[in-house]
Design a protein around this nucleic acid. Structure first.
Length: 659
RNA sequence: GCCCAGAUAGCUCAGUCGGCAGAGCAUUUCACUCGUAAUGAAAAGGUCGAGGGUUCGAUUCCCUCUCUGGGCUCCA
């Protein structure tokens, strides 16, 4: 028999019989690898294990415990899901079903408008497990387009995908569902069940099994709001039972720090039904934290050279006509209020008003950069289905700044902005930042190409000067100018987009903004929009999840609680409270009505940084029993020492941000 | 806006095959006065999200709306 030679990633080569497959290679390396193998990469191309290798191939084995391997088994599990659904729901049309982060989904069109119920998940899962134990192969075949259309004759969505391949319009957005070129690749599990797919897949369904169907959702065919609404099933899939369980555990942990849950538990804020969707009221404890955040922000803005302004919450329609918001964005605004002297709208943004302030008198280049700052509350009529706790809300406060500068000042201004933004974010415990640079969408923009190029260059070189890693999002800019978004990574590794720095060529034009230059001629300023928290509400929500409700001492609503052991210790305890308050700490006292253990438990559940227990020995020696959050109890701490330590702790929490 | 699922005491939830609404925690009162994560007893607490329909009778079944959750789409 003829032989072929293949080379392995470590540089070694191996001789195999002609007709050998990737699975043979894995087996020849070791039985453990053979067991974990789910696919291969051959000459840079994704490859099924059972597919015959060409002579001279460079091959790497993909194992199930790698991201690439999980991707394969998730995608294969999606096929199993589709098969189970077509069996249990005769007439169901299956559309696309890609692997996604942590799992997969599959979109179905069920006959007669049937929908999945949560209760269906269990029976579908059961059928999937039967398919897994049936040890069905994933058999790859490549068909000419006309034949593929015959195979999927009763699957209109599949035919639509095939037709797009024929027209060369397959955009890959169908997440691995398309074939390539003239041939369509398909994978067959049984004589009855076949799916369109680029692959690769695991060799057999028996390689699968550690999955769970998570939820039912609606989704539009090809993401088109006008198109048919499909039924989407989401699942998660892993290489082992342990990995699956770990994932479910992670989800449970993330749920525990859900800001909506913590906001109720810690009595921070609420969304009363009577207010209407997406509108919150802040309770005293939440308000303290918010005020501290805002005060800190104000203080930093004062030293950062910003001038503070205030503007009203509503304005005559003329303003939003001038700014263009009524033209671009009316759907996102609260509906008009018809008044005797015109039509008024709630403001969806602060920038038009800041432009009015700029324009209120003649400006000189000597005033630039002019930095206007406002904690400005805006109202946007977000669509009902998009509201999400504090993260997507209809009335919110932007820490909004508009900076008017000359072209020459732009780059320095952006560089110092980056510095400012990250310094302030560090005070809130974020240390891991990445940036996105969004560039011009050629189909939708205003302003000259020259301006766009210059501004984009300024943003890019500021990022590089600052040494921040960034990704370029081509065409993702708003129509009025390029922007930088800052993402932060939180305590459990999730990223949140918070700050944004945007150039605007549109508003200075629309408002006819000008300054007098050193040449005594009039020039148009460049305008920057800049929000640091983004929205105070959303930032608060992110912080709440980041800290899991345990705010650092400087931000905690209550920094310490004093607990007298018994009634006899109350006078001393009151004295302690008084002294701590005099030292600027937020402290309360809970009297000895309940048992000490119970009061400590309540304080711990409230995530108070310090629980201070005072009894006989403390009264005698002016000391405290200090029970810190997440630490060990320390007895007989002198009151002065405690105060000094806490003050120092708070100073240190803020000092790192300013350095 | 679209698809799915929800809404019962302050919170977490049970329940009513259509017939006076239930628990734990929290609250209040009483007793206990206690040294580091739940003392005991009692009381109070509900338009069963809102409106309409069916019914002798609706928190329960049907419809509409509001709000919430999970997605899709959207996010100037």
């Amino acid at each position: 028999m003829a032989q072929i030679t293949i080379s392995l990633p470590d540089g070694s080569t191996r001789a195999l019989d002609d007709g050998a497959t990737a699975a043979d290679v894995a087996a020849s390396i070791g039985s453990r690898l053979a067991k974990a193998a789910v696919a291969a990469v051959v000459n840079g191309e994704e490859w099924d294990l059972g597919r015959r290798l060409p002579d001279g191939a460079a091959i790497a084995i993909v194992t199930s415990d790698s991201e690439a391997g999980r991707h394969v088994l998730r995608h294969s599990t999606a096929h199993v899901l589709a098969q189970a659904v077509t069996q249990l729901f005769p007439g169901a049309k299956y559309t696309i079903g890609p692997a996604i982060e942590d799992g997969f989904y599959y979109d179905f069109d069920l006959p007669e408008g049937r929908t999945f119920a949560e209760a269906d998940l269990a029976s579908i899962e059961q059928r999937m497990l039967e398919i897994v134990s049936a040890d069905q192969p994933f058999e790859r075949a490549e068909l000419p387009i006309d034949e593929a259309l015959k195979v999927f004759a009763d699957q209109p969505y599949k035919c639509e995908i095939i037709e797009r391949v024929r027209q060369g319009g397959a955009d890959g957005a169908d997440a691995g569902e398309v074939g390539s070129g003239e041939a369509i690749s398909i994978y067959r599990n049984t004589p009855e069940f076949v799916d369109l797919c680029r692959g690769p897949h695991v060799p057999s369904t028996s390689k699968l099994g550690h999955f769970k169907l998570m939820k039912v959702a609606g989704a539009y065919w090809r993401g088109n709001e006008k198109g048919p609404m499909l039924q989407r099933l989401y699942g998660t899939a892993w290489e082992s039972k342990a990995a699956l369980e770990e994932h479910l555990h992670r989800l449970a942990e993330a749920e525990k720090r859900d800001h909506r849950k913590l906001a109720v538990e810690l009595d921070l804020l609420s969304f009363p039904q009577e207010l209407g969707g997406g509108l919150a009221v802040w309770h005293p404890k939440g308000a303290i934290v918010r005020k501290l955040m805002e005060d800190y922000s104000r203080e930093r803005h004062v030293t950062g050279g910003y001038q503070f302004v205030f503007t009203p919450h509503l304005a005559n329609a003329n303003l939003f006509q001038t700014s263009g918001h009524l033209g671009w964005y009316q759907d996102g605004m609260y509906p008009p209020m018809e008044m005797d002297n015109g039509v008024y709208y709630m403001k969806p943004m602060n920038c038009p008003m800041h432009c009015l302030i700029f324009r209120s008198r003649q400006r000189s280049y000597r005033e630039l950069p002019l930095r206007l700052f406002e904690l400005g509350t805006v109202y946007r009529y977000e669509r009902a289905g998009t509201l999400h706790g504090l993260m997507r809300i209809r009335g919110f406060t932007q820490d909004d700044s508009h900076i008017y500068c000359t072209e020459d000042q732009l780059q320095d201004e952006i560089a110092s902005l980056l510095d400012f933004v990250m310094s302030v974010l560090r005070a809130f415990g974020f240390t891991d930042f990445t940036a996105n640079l969004s560039t011009k969408d050629p189909a939708k923009y205003v302003g000259s190409d020259e301006n766009w190029d210059r501004a984009t260059d300024a943003l890019r070189s500021a990022l590089e000067r600052y040494g921040l890693t960034y990704r370029i999002k081509e065409g993702d800019a708003a129509f009025y100018g390029p922007k930088i978004d800052i993402d932060v990574r939180d305590a459990i590794g999730r990223t949140w987009q918070l700050s944004t720095i945007q150039c605007d060529f549109n508003l200075p034009e629309r408002f006819g903004l000008e300054y007098v230059g050193s040449d005594n001629a009039r020039h148009r300023p460049i305008m920057l929009h800049r929000a640091l928290f983004g929205s105070v509400e959303r930032f608060f929500g992110v912080l709440l999840e980041h800290y899991a409700g345990a705010f650092p001492t400087w931000l905690a609503p209550l920094q310490a609680r004093v607990l007298p052991v018994a009634e006899a210790h109350e006078p001393y305890a009151l004295g302690v409270v008084e002294q701590l308050r005099a030292a600027g700490l937020r402290v309360d006292l809970v009297d000895a009505t309940d048992q000490l253990g119970k009061r400590i438990r309540a304080a711990k559940l409230d995530k108070i940084p310090y629980v201070l227990v005072v009894g006989d020995s403390d009264v005698a020696a002016t000391t405290l029993g200090v029970n810190p959050r997440g630490g060990d109890v320390e007895r007989d701490v002198p009151l002065d020492t405690f105060v000094a330590n806490v003050r120092q702790e708070i100073d240190e929490q803020l000092a790192s941000a300013r350095s």
